[in-house]
Each structure stands twice: as structure tokens, then as C-alpha cells.
Write a protein that binds this DNA or RNA. Structure first.
Lengths: 193, 193
DNA sequence: CCCATTCTTGACTATTCATTCCAGAAAGAG
DNA sequence: CTCTTTCTGGAATGAATAGTCAAGAATGGG
């Protein structure tokens, strides 16, 4: 009964996420979204609701896509230290390539919106808790496998790694100097020794 | 010759800074600014130029006021470790009090604007370099006074402290949990041992 | 074929935005 | 007082904004 949707919902949402990620909530206009999503304005409203609802769905999407990458990386067997090094160096590498300097969508959301939008606050808060847990499980595994004997308080260190990751990503938006970023990574990971 | 200005320029600029600091660039309307600055709209344009110019001046103002506090704190004689602990714990304390969750104006500027406004990028970049230098000088002093023997690469550690500070401030906007923030501080400062 | 559904298009509304203009009041200098 | 400057308030401008509406074309199920 009736015509099918011509566009792929997930695809359009992904495109919306890219717009909000690189421009932020306020600076992204519906015009920008319609153009970049490649769908009709009416379809946008019919499918995703209003701009704010679309933003929240974009945040969820980001968490699924980008968050999953991190979680999977942290769960891969092998040296936890090496994995963490790859994770942090990967952030540096991607930051230096990305000429848009988008940073972390979750971090941006915290900075721009979490203070005055409780739906955003809930999402960013729970995302950060999830990241902390992923770090925590990796640290526990590293301890069990005898690799991280120096880590006394894995819960505290997992929180530290969360915060450090955000700090590094922010710094990478302010400077292009690879040496500075690698210095940060070097000292950050030294707490694991 | 002529009537004097009725309002204090610095005072008005300070008020403008508060608005941009708590709401960001895009979400702060001229209406908000006029209301909170307590001056006339025309006076705003006559005195500060347009919204963008006012924003840049607010950034400069923030650097003078808030930056100076940090720089002075770092230059005070006495234990560098203790000073750094006070600095980081002060950030936690202020973040937990501030019900507006404003974070760091410079960090917010990086996140919201540095990618597409080169004047903002220049200011945030130079501010970060200044902060790095302030940390660096403090670390050098600590080494000279024999307190920080464990710090091998003070330049790298100063960069790390910069990044960590921003990470902590961001995390403090996402969570109210004092224990989490104190964990971050604890591990961060452990690199000085 | 017919009907229901959905896509597409473009126009439309209503609000908000930054910015400018204007006319008059206030106030200091000579 | 007089001139000049600045403050004040409100109105006006024009662009951009988010969101809605309506009419028609496309498409699939029955």
C-alpha cells in the first residue's frame, strides 16, 4: 500500500550527523541540512521531526558509529597498553588529517548545548559513562593479564583517560603541531607504567 | 566638548563576555547582550563595532582576566606541586558551584568557532601557547628547587597539563559527580611524582 | 485499473536576527 | 547660553531563520 521511501533513512541521518558535527547545532541551518542530506525539506520534517529532534538522533547515531569503534578497539585481545597507544595516536592522526577540525561530536555537544538542553546533557553524560566503562574493562583485563601492575586504581585511571581523550581532541583543534599532541599522548600514557 | 560616556566601557565589555561565555557566539543575540550589558543598542555598535568584533574583544578580555589569575597563581613562590593541586582542585570546585556550567570560554571558542573563524583560531591558539609556557616555567622552577625530580620532559608535561585542564573542564560540564572529577585530578597530578 | 500513500516542489508564514536610521534629550566645554 | 558630542529609545530594514501548506507526480498493493 503506497509508495516506498526513496531515500535511505540511515544514510540521510548519517549525513545530518556530519552537518551537526562539523557546524554545531546553532550554526547548522535547515537549508544546510536539506542540501547535504540530499532529501526534500518536507521529507526531513516528516521523517525526523524538527531540527532539535534531528540533532538528538544525530547524537545517538554518532554514539553508535563512532562509539562502537572505540569500544571494539578496546575489547580486542592483546596488549592493553598497545591498544591505548593506538587509540590515542589514532586520534592525533585523524585530527591532523581532518581539515574541518570537527573534534568529537559528543564533546562539542557538551560544550555547546549540554548546559541548556537536558536531552543533550543526558546523552553526553551517558556516553561518557559508557566510555569510562570501556576503559575500565580494558584496564581490568590488562591488570589480570599482568601487564598493568602499576595501575593502582583502575576506576580513577579510566576516568582520567576519558578526560584526557577529550582534552587531547580539543587541543588538536587549536594546534596543528604534531609534536605538541604527541607530547600529550606520551605523558598521558605514562600513567600506565 | 560633548557629553561623557555614561557607562564604563570595561564594565560593559565584561558583561558582554559573561553573555558569550555562558551562551556561546551563535546563541547569544544582540538582544541578550544589550539587556545584560545594560547599555543602549546604538552605544553597543558605536563602542564595540558589530557582534563579531564584540565577541573577539570579549575573548581578549577573558584572557586578561581569567588567564592572569592562572598565570599569577603559577608564579607564586612555594611548592609547585601544591600550586598545581590547588589550581586543578579550584577548577573542580568552581565547576561544581557554577550552575550555569560555562566551562572555559577559550575551550568553548575552540569548539564552536576556531574551525571557521581565523581571528578566533589565532586567539585561542596563542592563549593555549601562553598557558603552556606558564606551566613550563612553573615546572622548571619546581625542578630547580628539587621538588620535581621525576619530571623528565617539562615541555611535554606542560603540554599535557594544558590538555588535561581542558579535558577536566569539559568533563565537569558533563557530570556533577565530584568523585569522578577528583579521580581525574589525582591521576593527572600523579605524573609529577 | 484504482486507491492509498509518499515523494517532490515551491510557495508561504511568521519569527527572529543583526544592523541602521532618526529624532530628541542630556550634558559638558567655551 | 551655544555648540558639539553622546546617550536614549524606538522604529525600520532586510536577510535568514524554522516550520507549514498545498498541489501534483510517482509508485505500489489489491
Amino acid at each position: 500500500m503506497g509508495r516506498h521511501k526513496e531515500f535511505d533513512r540511515d544514510d540521510a541521518l548519517h549525513k545530518a550527523m556530519e552537518v551537526f558535527w562539523s557546524r554545531g547545532y546553532e550554526a547548522a541551518s535547515i537549508e544546510d541540512l536539506v542540501r547535504h542530506m540530499g532529501i526534500n525539506r518536507q521529507s526531513l520534517y516528516d521523517t525526523f521531526g524538527d531540527k532539535h529532534a534531528l540533532y538528538l538522533q544525530s547524537l545517538d547515531r554518532y554514539r553508535e558509529v563512532e562509539g562502537r569503534k572505540v569500544f571494539e578497539q578496546l575489547e580486542r585481545p592483546g596488549s592493553v597498553k598497545k591498544t591505548l597507544r593506538q587509540l590515542f595516536e589514532g586520534v592525533v592522526e585523524r585530527a591532523l588529517c581532518d581539515e574541518q577540525r570537527r573534534g568529537c561530536f559528543m564533546g562539542n555537544a557538551i560544550s555547546e548545548l549540554a548546559g541548556r538542553c537536558k536531552e543533550t546533557a543526558a546523552r553526553t553524560c551517558s556516553n561518557m559513562a559508557a566510555a569510562e566503562d570501556a576503559f575500565y574493562r580494558a584496564l581490568l583485563r590488562g591488570k589480570k593479564e599482568g601487564e598493568l601492575k602499576g595501575v593502582r586504581d583502575p576506576r580513577a585511571v579510566s576516568r582520567f583517560l576519558c578526560s584526557s581523550l577529550q582534552g587531547l581532541i580539543l587541543m588538536a583543534r587549536a594546534t596543528q603541531d604534531r609534536k605538541k599532541l604527541e607530547d600529550v599522548v606520551k605523558v598521558t600514557l605514562s600513567v600506565l607504567d
